[in-house]
Amino acid sequence: MKQRLQELKEEALQKIAATENLRELNDIRVAYLGKKGPITEVLRGMGKLAPEERPVIGALANEVRQTIAQEIETKQHHLEQVLLEEKLKKESIDVTLPGRPVKLGNHHPLTKVVREIEELFIGLGYTIEEGPEVETDYYNFEALNLPKNHPARDMQDTFYITEDLLLRTHTSPVQARTMEKYKGQGPLKIICPGKVYRRDDDDATHSHQFMQIEGLVIDENIRLSDLKGTLNVFAKKVFGQDREIRLRPSFFPFTEPSVEMDISCKICGGSGCHVCKHTGWIEVLGGGMVHPNVLEMSGFDSKKYTGFAFGIGVERIAMLKYGIDDIRHFYTNDTRFLKQFSPLSK
Protein backbone atom coordinates (compact mmCIF):
# COMPACT_ATOMS: atom_id res chain seq x y z
CA MET A 1 0.00 0.00 0.00
CA LYS A 2 2.86 2.22 0.75
CA GLN A 3 4.06 1.71 -2.70
CA ARG A 4 0.66 2.46 -4.18
CA LEU A 5 0.56 5.77 -2.37
CA GLN A 6 4.05 6.69 -3.48
CA GLU A 7 3.11 5.89 -7.07
CA LEU A 8 -0.05 7.97 -6.84
CA LYS A 9 1.96 10.85 -5.53
CA GLU A 10 4.54 10.66 -8.28
CA GLU A 11 1.85 10.29 -10.91
CA ALA A 12 -0.17 13.26 -9.62
CA LEU A 13 2.85 15.51 -9.29
CA GLN A 14 3.88 14.72 -12.83
CA LYS A 15 0.42 15.54 -14.15
CA ILE A 16 0.32 18.79 -12.17
CA ALA A 17 3.64 19.81 -13.51
CA ALA A 18 2.58 18.99 -17.04
CA THR A 19 -0.72 20.84 -17.10
CA GLU A 20 -0.93 24.39 -18.44
CA ASN A 21 -4.51 25.29 -17.80
CA LEU A 22 -6.83 25.69 -14.90
CA ARG A 23 -9.51 23.30 -16.14
CA GLU A 24 -7.07 20.41 -16.39
CA LEU A 25 -5.74 21.28 -12.99
CA ASN A 26 -9.23 21.12 -11.60
CA ASP A 27 -9.71 17.74 -13.25
CA ILE A 28 -6.53 16.56 -11.54
CA ARG A 29 -7.82 17.84 -8.23
CA VAL A 30 -11.07 15.96 -8.67
CA ALA A 31 -9.29 12.86 -9.96
CA TYR A 32 -6.80 12.54 -7.09
CA LEU A 33 -8.36 14.31 -4.17
CA GLY A 34 -12.09 13.82 -4.85
CA LYS A 35 -14.33 11.54 -2.87
CA LYS A 36 -14.04 8.90 -5.54
CA GLY A 37 -10.32 9.43 -6.00
CA PRO A 38 -7.58 6.79 -5.48
CA ILE A 39 -6.33 8.21 -2.19
CA THR A 40 -9.77 8.07 -0.66
CA GLU A 41 -9.93 4.53 -1.93
CA VAL A 42 -6.63 3.67 -0.21
CA LEU A 43 -7.89 5.13 3.01
CA ARG A 44 -11.10 3.16 2.75
CA GLY A 45 -9.09 -0.04 2.35
CA MET A 46 -7.21 0.62 5.57
CA GLY A 47 -9.65 -1.57 7.52
CA LYS A 48 -7.93 -4.57 6.08
CA LEU A 49 -4.57 -3.59 7.49
CA ALA A 50 -3.00 -4.71 10.68
CA PRO A 51 -3.77 -2.27 13.48
CA GLU A 52 -0.14 -1.27 13.94
CA GLU A 53 0.17 -0.45 10.22
CA ARG A 54 -2.89 1.76 10.14
CA PRO A 55 -1.42 4.93 11.62
CA VAL A 56 1.67 4.64 9.45
CA ILE A 57 -0.33 4.28 6.24
CA GLY A 58 -2.86 6.88 7.42
CA ALA A 59 -0.09 9.40 8.03
CA LEU A 60 1.47 8.63 4.69
CA ALA A 61 -1.85 8.96 2.84
CA ASN A 62 -2.43 12.33 4.50
CA GLU A 63 1.04 13.49 3.62
CA VAL A 64 0.54 12.44 -0.03
CA ARG A 65 -2.79 14.18 -0.10
CA GLN A 66 -1.37 17.35 1.36
CA THR A 67 1.57 17.39 -0.97
CA ILE A 68 -0.70 17.02 -3.99
CA ALA A 69 -3.12 19.67 -2.70
CA GLN A 70 -0.28 22.07 -2.07
CA GLU A 71 1.21 21.50 -5.49
CA ILE A 72 -2.20 22.06 -7.09
CA GLU A 73 -2.59 25.28 -5.16
CA THR A 74 0.83 26.50 -6.10
CA LYS A 75 0.22 25.59 -9.69
CA GLN A 76 -3.20 27.20 -9.66
CA HIS A 77 -1.76 30.39 -8.28
CA HIS A 78 0.89 30.33 -10.94
CA LEU A 79 -1.59 29.74 -13.74
CA GLU A 80 -3.89 32.47 -12.49
CA GLN A 81 -0.96 34.83 -12.37
CA VAL A 82 -0.08 34.00 -15.95
CA LEU A 83 -3.66 34.56 -17.02
CA LEU A 84 -3.85 37.88 -15.21
CA GLU A 85 -0.66 39.02 -16.77
CA GLU A 86 -1.97 38.15 -20.20
CA LYS A 87 -5.17 40.00 -19.46
CA LEU A 88 -3.33 43.09 -18.23
CA LYS A 89 -1.10 43.00 -21.23
CA LYS A 90 -4.09 42.90 -23.49
CA GLU A 91 -5.67 45.82 -21.66
CA SER A 92 -2.64 48.01 -21.96
CA ILE A 93 -3.26 51.41 -23.66
CA ASP A 94 -1.26 54.37 -24.98
CA VAL A 95 -1.45 56.81 -22.11
CA THR A 96 -0.03 59.54 -24.25
CA LEU A 97 -3.13 59.76 -26.42
CA PRO A 98 -5.26 62.83 -25.66
CA GLY A 99 -7.97 62.53 -23.01
CA ARG A 100 -11.63 63.12 -23.65
CA PRO A 101 -11.89 66.91 -23.51
CA VAL A 102 -14.13 68.56 -20.94
CA LYS A 103 -14.96 72.11 -21.90
CA LEU A 104 -13.88 74.86 -19.55
CA GLY A 105 -14.68 78.54 -19.77
CA ASN A 106 -13.02 81.53 -18.17
CA HIS A 107 -13.94 84.83 -16.66
CA HIS A 108 -13.56 87.74 -19.04
CA PRO A 109 -10.24 89.41 -18.15
CA LEU A 110 -12.12 92.50 -16.95
CA THR A 111 -14.24 90.37 -14.62
CA LYS A 112 -11.08 88.65 -13.45
CA VAL A 113 -9.56 91.99 -12.50
CA VAL A 114 -12.79 93.18 -10.87
CA ARG A 115 -13.10 89.98 -8.86
CA GLU A 116 -9.52 90.14 -7.67
CA ILE A 117 -10.01 93.72 -6.53
CA GLU A 118 -13.36 92.88 -4.92
CA GLU A 119 -11.75 90.07 -2.94
CA LEU A 120 -9.01 92.38 -1.71
CA PHE A 121 -11.43 95.03 -0.53
CA ILE A 122 -13.90 92.60 1.01
CA GLY A 123 -10.96 91.46 3.11
CA LEU A 124 -10.46 95.09 4.17
CA GLY A 125 -14.09 95.35 5.31
CA TYR A 126 -15.69 96.84 2.19
CA THR A 127 -19.02 95.88 0.67
CA ILE A 128 -19.83 95.98 -3.02
CA GLU A 129 -22.43 98.47 -4.18
CA GLU A 130 -23.90 98.67 -7.64
CA GLY A 131 -25.94 101.38 -9.30
CA PRO A 132 -27.80 102.23 -12.49
CA GLU A 133 -25.96 102.81 -15.75
CA VAL A 134 -28.56 105.32 -16.90
CA GLU A 135 -28.16 108.14 -14.40
CA THR A 136 -29.70 111.47 -13.72
CA ASP A 137 -27.65 114.60 -14.27
CA TYR A 138 -27.95 115.16 -10.52
CA TYR A 139 -26.17 111.99 -9.40
CA ASN A 140 -23.63 111.94 -12.21
CA PHE A 141 -22.62 115.59 -11.86
CA GLU A 142 -24.37 117.88 -9.42
CA ALA A 143 -24.14 115.67 -6.35
CA LEU A 144 -20.44 115.36 -7.14
CA ASN A 145 -19.85 119.10 -6.99
CA LEU A 146 -20.15 119.56 -10.75
CA PRO A 147 -22.95 122.08 -11.21
CA LYS A 148 -24.24 122.84 -14.69
CA ASN A 149 -21.73 124.93 -16.70
CA HIS A 150 -18.83 123.82 -14.51
CA PRO A 151 -15.73 123.99 -16.72
CA ALA A 152 -14.67 120.51 -15.58
CA ARG A 153 -17.71 119.06 -17.31
CA ASP A 154 -15.57 119.49 -20.39
CA MET A 155 -13.55 116.60 -19.06
CA GLN A 156 -16.57 114.34 -19.28
CA ASP A 157 -18.01 114.05 -22.69
CA THR A 158 -21.36 112.59 -22.02
CA PHE A 159 -23.98 110.53 -23.83
CA TYR A 160 -27.22 112.29 -22.99
CA ILE A 161 -30.61 110.60 -23.43
CA THR A 162 -32.63 113.63 -22.39
CA GLU A 163 -31.59 116.92 -20.79
CA ASP A 164 -31.65 115.18 -17.47
CA LEU A 165 -30.85 111.53 -18.22
CA LEU A 166 -27.49 110.26 -19.35
CA LEU A 167 -25.27 107.22 -19.48
CA ARG A 168 -23.10 107.56 -16.39
CA THR A 169 -19.60 108.78 -17.21
CA HIS A 170 -18.09 107.26 -14.09
CA THR A 171 -19.12 104.98 -11.22
CA SER A 172 -18.99 107.93 -8.81
CA PRO A 173 -22.79 108.42 -8.78
CA VAL A 174 -22.97 105.17 -6.81
CA GLN A 175 -21.02 107.07 -4.11
CA ALA A 176 -23.72 109.66 -3.82
CA ARG A 177 -26.53 107.09 -3.88
CA THR A 178 -24.89 104.95 -1.23
CA MET A 179 -24.15 107.93 0.99
CA GLU A 180 -27.83 108.88 0.86
CA LYS A 181 -28.71 105.32 1.84
CA TYR A 182 -26.49 105.53 4.91
CA LYS A 183 -28.39 108.69 6.00
CA GLY A 184 -25.37 110.57 7.28
CA GLN A 185 -24.20 107.73 9.47
CA GLY A 186 -20.67 106.33 9.09
CA PRO A 187 -18.58 104.29 8.81
CA LEU A 188 -19.05 103.45 5.19
CA LYS A 189 -16.62 101.41 3.13
CA ILE A 190 -17.66 100.46 -0.35
CA ILE A 191 -16.37 99.70 -3.78
CA CYS A 192 -18.60 100.09 -6.82
CA PRO A 193 -17.64 98.26 -10.00
CA GLY A 194 -19.57 98.85 -13.21
CA LYS A 195 -19.85 99.90 -16.80
CA VAL A 196 -19.47 103.55 -17.76
CA TYR A 197 -19.77 105.42 -21.04
CA ARG A 198 -18.15 108.40 -22.73
CA ARG A 199 -18.42 110.03 -26.11
CA ASP A 200 -15.14 108.72 -27.49
CA ASP A 201 -14.40 107.20 -30.85
CA ASP A 202 -13.33 103.59 -30.39
CA ASP A 203 -9.63 103.12 -31.12
CA ALA A 204 -6.65 101.34 -29.58
CA THR A 205 -6.75 103.44 -26.42
CA HIS A 206 -10.35 104.70 -26.27
CA SER A 207 -13.65 102.94 -25.90
CA HIS A 208 -17.10 104.48 -25.67
CA GLN A 209 -17.91 101.85 -23.04
CA PHE A 210 -15.51 100.79 -20.32
CA MET A 211 -15.41 99.66 -16.69
CA GLN A 212 -14.53 101.45 -13.49
CA ILE A 213 -14.33 100.58 -9.85
CA GLU A 214 -15.09 103.38 -7.46
CA GLY A 215 -13.90 103.14 -3.87
CA LEU A 216 -15.27 105.21 -1.01
CA VAL A 217 -14.57 105.32 2.71
CA ILE A 218 -16.29 107.73 5.07
CA ASP A 219 -15.74 107.85 8.79
CA GLU A 220 -14.60 110.19 11.49
CA ASN A 221 -10.93 111.08 11.12
CA ILE A 222 -10.25 109.54 7.74
CA ARG A 223 -6.86 110.88 6.62
CA LEU A 224 -5.06 111.48 3.35
CA SER A 225 -2.48 108.99 4.66
CA ASP A 226 -5.27 106.36 4.83
CA LEU A 227 -5.88 106.84 1.13
CA LYS A 228 -2.16 106.52 0.46
CA GLY A 229 -1.93 103.35 2.57
CA THR A 230 -5.02 101.80 0.99
CA LEU A 231 -3.81 102.50 -2.53
CA ASN A 232 -0.45 101.03 -1.62
CA VAL A 233 -2.11 97.79 -0.49
CA PHE A 234 -4.13 97.76 -3.69
CA ALA A 235 -1.14 98.37 -5.96
CA LYS A 236 0.99 95.71 -4.32
CA LYS A 237 -1.81 93.14 -4.47
CA VAL A 238 -2.69 93.82 -8.08
CA PHE A 239 0.72 94.56 -9.57
CA GLY A 240 3.13 92.79 -7.24
CA GLN A 241 4.92 93.34 -3.93
CA ASP A 242 7.94 94.86 -5.60
CA ARG A 243 6.06 97.80 -7.09
CA GLU A 244 6.22 101.24 -5.50
CA ILE A 245 3.53 103.90 -5.62
CA ARG A 246 3.63 107.66 -5.59
CA LEU A 247 0.89 110.25 -5.35
CA ARG A 248 0.79 113.45 -7.37
CA PRO A 249 -1.62 116.35 -6.85
CA SER A 250 -4.40 116.49 -9.40
CA PHE A 251 -7.89 117.90 -9.73
CA PHE A 252 -11.32 116.37 -9.62
CA PRO A 253 -14.30 118.47 -8.57
CA PHE A 254 -15.57 115.83 -6.15
CA THR A 255 -12.36 115.47 -4.15
CA GLU A 256 -10.14 118.00 -2.40
CA PRO A 257 -7.26 117.42 -2.39
CA SER A 258 -7.21 115.22 -5.47
CA VAL A 259 -4.39 112.90 -6.39
CA GLU A 260 -3.20 110.70 -9.19
CA MET A 261 -1.46 107.48 -8.28
CA ASP A 262 1.51 106.22 -10.28
CA ILE A 263 3.20 102.86 -9.92
CA SER A 264 6.84 102.21 -10.63
CA CYS A 265 7.36 100.85 -14.13
CA LYS A 266 7.66 97.09 -14.23
CA ILE A 267 9.50 97.06 -17.55
CA CYS A 268 12.43 99.25 -16.56
CA GLY A 269 12.13 99.09 -12.79
CA GLY A 270 12.00 102.87 -12.57
CA SER A 271 15.01 103.83 -14.67
CA GLY A 272 12.88 105.03 -17.62
CA CYS A 273 11.76 103.34 -20.83
CA HIS A 274 9.26 103.95 -23.61
CA VAL A 275 6.42 102.23 -21.72
CA CYS A 276 6.63 104.78 -18.88
CA LYS A 277 7.59 107.60 -21.27
CA HIS A 278 11.02 107.71 -19.61
CA THR A 279 9.63 108.78 -16.25
CA GLY A 280 9.94 105.45 -14.45
CA TRP A 281 6.30 105.79 -13.41
CA ILE A 282 2.97 104.75 -14.88
CA GLU A 283 -0.26 106.56 -14.13
CA VAL A 284 -2.83 104.14 -12.74
CA LEU A 285 -5.74 105.88 -11.06
CA GLY A 286 -7.15 109.02 -9.52
CA GLY A 287 -8.59 109.69 -6.10
CA GLY A 288 -8.68 112.13 -3.24
CA MET A 289 -10.35 113.27 -0.07
CA VAL A 290 -14.11 113.57 -0.52
CA HIS A 291 -15.00 117.23 -1.10
CA PRO A 292 -17.00 118.66 1.81
CA ASN A 293 -19.71 119.79 -0.63
CA VAL A 294 -20.14 116.19 -1.75
CA LEU A 295 -20.42 115.00 1.85
CA GLU A 296 -22.95 117.67 2.71
CA MET A 297 -25.03 117.17 -0.44
CA SER A 298 -25.42 113.51 0.39
CA GLY A 299 -26.34 114.07 4.00
CA PHE A 300 -23.01 113.72 5.84
CA ASP A 301 -21.83 116.37 8.27
CA SER A 302 -18.49 117.50 6.86
CA LYS A 303 -17.45 118.83 10.26
CA LYS A 304 -17.71 115.36 11.73
CA TYR A 305 -16.84 113.12 8.82
CA THR A 306 -14.08 112.99 6.29
CA GLY A 307 -13.54 110.41 3.60
CA PHE A 308 -11.53 109.32 0.66
CA ALA A 309 -12.53 108.08 -2.76
CA PHE A 310 -10.71 106.65 -5.71
CA GLY A 311 -11.62 105.48 -9.21
CA ILE A 312 -9.91 102.61 -10.93
CA GLY A 313 -10.05 102.12 -14.71
CA VAL A 314 -10.43 98.36 -15.05
CA GLU A 315 -9.28 98.21 -18.69
CA ARG A 316 -6.18 100.19 -17.81
CA ILE A 317 -5.34 97.79 -14.98
CA ALA A 318 -5.91 94.76 -17.22
CA MET A 319 -3.84 96.27 -20.04
CA LEU A 320 -0.95 97.04 -17.69
CA LYS A 321 -1.19 93.70 -15.90
CA TYR A 322 -1.44 91.46 -18.93
CA GLY A 323 0.37 93.62 -21.49
CA ILE A 324 -2.71 94.05 -23.71
CA ASP A 325 -2.06 96.66 -26.38
CA ASP A 326 -5.52 97.44 -27.72
CA ILE A 327 -8.59 98.22 -25.63
CA ARG A 328 -10.90 96.91 -28.38
CA HIS A 329 -9.82 93.34 -27.61
CA PHE A 330 -12.01 93.48 -24.50
CA TYR A 331 -15.15 93.99 -26.56
CA THR A 332 -14.47 91.91 -29.69
CA ASN A 333 -14.74 88.65 -27.74
CA ASP A 334 -12.36 86.66 -29.92
CA THR A 335 -12.30 83.23 -28.28
CA ARG A 336 -8.54 83.08 -28.79
CA PHE A 337 -8.34 86.15 -26.55
CA LEU A 338 -10.91 85.11 -23.97
CA LYS A 339 -9.34 81.68 -23.38
CA GLN A 340 -6.04 83.19 -22.28
CA PHE A 341 -6.98 84.33 -18.80
CA SER A 342 -6.82 81.37 -16.48
CA PRO A 343 -8.39 81.94 -13.08
CA LEU A 344 -5.15 81.02 -11.34
CA SER A 345 -2.81 83.39 -13.12
CA LYS A 346 -1.72 86.46 -11.20
Binding site: L224, D226, K228, R246
Partner: peptide
Protein backbone atom coordinates in the same frame (compact mmCIF):
# COMPACT_ATOMS: atom_id res chain seq x y z
CA UNK B 1 3.14 113.77 -0.93
CA UNK B 2 6.08 111.40 -0.67
CA UNK B 3 6.44 112.39 2.99
CA UNK B 4 2.83 111.52 3.87
CA UNK B 5 2.87 108.18 5.76
CA UNK B 6 1.11 104.99 4.71
CA UNK B 7 -1.79 104.20 7.07
CA UNK B 8 -5.11 102.35 6.94
CA UNK B 9 -8.43 103.60 8.36
CA UNK B 10 -8.52 103.02 12.10
CA UNK B 11 -12.19 103.53 12.97
CA UNK B 12 -14.94 101.11 13.84
CA UNK B 13 -14.63 97.75 12.08
CA UNK B 14 -16.90 97.07 9.15
CA UNK B 15 -17.84 93.69 7.75
CA UNK B 16 -16.83 93.06 4.17
CA UNK B 17 -19.05 90.67 2.29
CA UNK B 18 -20.99 89.90 -0.85
CA UNK B 19 -24.75 90.22 -0.94
CA UNK B 20 -26.78 87.06 -1.55
CA UNK B 21 -27.40 88.28 -5.07
CA UNK B 22 -23.69 88.81 -5.72
Amino acid sequence: YDKIPFTLPEGEQTRGRLTDYQ
